[in-house]
């Protein structure tokens, strides 16, 4: 599904790499938490998968595509297989719930009949069937995030990327969102979720990948936000690459 091989990402005017020689494979149907402090490379990871950034070194394969070789004008078609959810929802304020979800299908050229059916179905799934004519500002934060999730999955993507989707929500609402994401995952969609929320990660008992300074320090099945076992992996020193200079 997603395979990183020795992936490094350097941004201009910053000698410290955002990701440093990352190797990772995520399989179909997995639910993976990306945890780590701010600036540890979680967002860079998601942006690379989405091909919003290009790698500096190494190879990324997503859905059978080598993103390094993917041509610029093919990128839109590649992204149709991915769904994305953000902390700040990113809904269009002047469009209703229905229109917000429908918009993502309209702009990729789906027929009106298809859109009507697909949007109703997905709104029912996220539990907003009765609120399709509301505007975003008339909804609670949790409901707005459900709209965003509905928009991300309405085209039935193989992978759903979530960048701190519960970052702006209270614990009870967050739990609701997690239930929804689990349900989507159960339907076969691979989910990669970056988060700071320890409680959510601990309860979910899913695969946890921890990033520190752009390197993977932990990759645990059924892990918690902090490792239950002694921090084994932390002892393994990162490979020394003088040119990338990660050591402080």
């Amino acid at each position: 599904m997603i395979r990183f091989e020795q992936v490094s990402k350097l941004y201009a005017r910053n000698s410290k790499p955002a990701l440093n020689k990352v190797d990772l494979e995520i399989l179909k149907g997995e639910f993976v938490f990306l945890v780590g402090a701010s600036g540890s490379g979680k967002s860079s990871f998601l942006r690379l998968v989405l091909r919003e950034e290009t790698v500096s070194q190494g190879q990324i394969h997503v859905l059978g595509q080598n993103l390094r070789k993917l041509r610029g004008r093919k990128v839109p078609y590649f992204r149709r297989n991915l769904g994305v959810v953000f902390q700040d929802f990113r809904l269009l304020p002047q469009k209703s719930v229905f229109e917000n979800v429908a918009f993502s299908l309209q702009v990729i050229g789906k027929s009106k009949a298809f859109i009507g059916g697909a949007v109703d179905e997905v709104l029912k799934m996220v539990g907003l069937a009765g609120k399709s004519t509301r505007l975003p500002h008339e909804l609670s934060g949790g409901e707005q995030q459900r709209v965003a999730i509905a928009r991300a999955i309405v085209n039935k993507p193989a992978i759903l990327l979530a960048d701190e989707p519960t970052g702006n929500l209270d614990p009870a609402t967050s739990a609701g969102i997690m239930t929804l994401l689990s349900r989507i995952n159960a339907g076969g969609t691979t989910i990669v979720m970056a988060t700071h929320d320890a409680g959510i990660v601990d309860r979910a008992k899913q695969r946890v990948v921890e990033l520190v300074g752009g390197q993977i320090v932990r990759d645990e099945r059924q892990g918690g936000y902090q490792t239950q076992s002694v921090p084994v992996k932390l002892q393994a020193p990162p490979p020394k690459v003088p040119t990338l200079g990660t050591e402080e």
């Binding site: 989405l50 004008r73 839109p76 078609y77 590649f78 992204r79 149709r80 991915l82 994305v84 990113r90 269009l92 918009f103 993502s104 702009v107 990729i108 928009r151 085209n155």
Partner: peptide
């Protein structure tokens, strides 16, 4: 959003 959802 159009770029995100893959509008050409």
């Amino acid at each position: 959003i159009m770029r995100l959802v893959g509008a050409s």
